[in-house]
């Protein structure tokens, strides 16, 4: 095992093996990961973060591949964090996004890492934001987070991003209502992929209407709708242009700083919650006392409200 200093040098030099190992520490051995991030914190600006989300099969990975290819032609270094859901039942996960990224997988200027959502107690995998920081210090100009947009975890992940692309397809027209409340609200740019399909006009209209309906008075950014056919590389240049426009808008407006400040605030709260969970709640959960209380609640001799108070007695201020 390398020393901390060796790893830090390696990360700053952009050596993949060190970067990859550091992400594993961040995921699995949090305290060691924190030790690294403490040393690295502030050593570089946080990279521009693009989130890409949408329903399964909408072409997110293929789009990612093509967007990254475009950036690479401009000489930018890119890291991709590809997130797939962790099974609630087994804790396992199929991380299959690399399959569609074969154009960039062999490129030395691109680093791809797959991660499971691994949500503990319904929260989002806290390692993801730490990984974003690490990749920033490793010198990647852009970081792209790809995630399936199906639940709150995914929306939270995308919330970290500076620019969020919501990908949809012409066939999604009928269930547009269902993802209106969740997914569509987080988008800065709508991508209508597979736009070579006949029903594209109807879907485009639906999206346009929605953008008009949700646009608030005085808001300077109007969500653009970009039609793409990722498999044929169509619309990609325009999409990248829109990402740049949004970036410029955020920067000029002071929004970028403000958004990132908010992300930091949430991150700080998450880190505190994580510590409280690990140092206070977990030990209680593993104690005899907890099992007794649980049994008492089951036998109806005690209520869970009193039990929670008593379990935390002397651990929390009154």
């Amino acid at each position: 095992m390398q020393s901390l200093q060796e790893m830090i040098e390696g990360i700053k030099a952009g050596e993949e093996k060190h970067i990859a190992r550091a992400i594993s520490l961040i995921e699995n051995d949090r305290d060691k990961g924190f030790a690294l991030l403490k040393e690295l914190y502030g050593s570089a600006e946080i990279s521009y973060l693009v989130g890409i989300t949408g329903p399964p099969g909408s072409g997110k990975s293929t789009l990612t591949d093509k967007i990254v290819l475009h950036w690479r032609k401009q000489g930018l270094k890119v890291a991709i964090i590809a997130i797939d859901p962790t099974s609630q039942f087994s804790g396992g996960a199929l991380l299959g996004d690399r399959i569609r990224m074969d154009n960039v997988a062999a490129d030395k200027g691109v680093f791809i890492r797959s991660m499971g959502t691994r949500g503990t107690l319904g929260g989002l995998n806290p390692a993801i934001y730490d990984t974003v920081l690490l990749l920033s210090y490793a010198g990647y100009d852009y970081i792209l987070i790809e995630t399936v947009g199906v639940g709150q975890n995914e929306v939270d992940i995308v919330d970290l991003a500076d620019t969020t692309l919501v990908v949809t397809v012409p066939e999604a027209g009928d269930d547009i209502q269902t993802f209106k409340a969740g997914l569509m609200e987080v988008g800065d740019i709508f991508v209508l992929n597979k736009s070579d399909r006949p029903s594209v006009i109807k879907m485009e209209l639906t999206l346009e209407q929605m953008v008009r309906l949700t646009h608030k008075e005085g808001e300077k950014w109007t969500i653009p709708i970009v039609k793409t056919t990722a498999t044929e590389n169509k619309g990609i240049a325009e999409l990248v242009e829109k990402i740049n426009d949004h970036k410029e808008y955020l920067q000029n407006d002071g929004q970028l700083k403000e958004n990132r400040h908010e992300v930091m605030r949430r991150q700080l709260i998450n880190l505190m919650e994580e510590r409280v969970l690990a140092k206070i709640i977990k030990p209680i959960e593993n104690s005899e006392h907890f099992s007794e209380k649980l049994k008492a609640i089951r036998d109806l001799s005690e209520d869970p409200y009193t039990a929670a108070e008593e379990l935390l007695k002397n651990r929390l201020p009154e």
Partner: peptide, 12 residues
């Protein structure tokens, strides 16, 4: 392997 709780990266 997933059912056994592992994370599997499948590269096709």
């Amino acid at each position: 392997l997933i059912e056994a709780g592992m994370e599997v990266v499948y590269t096709g």
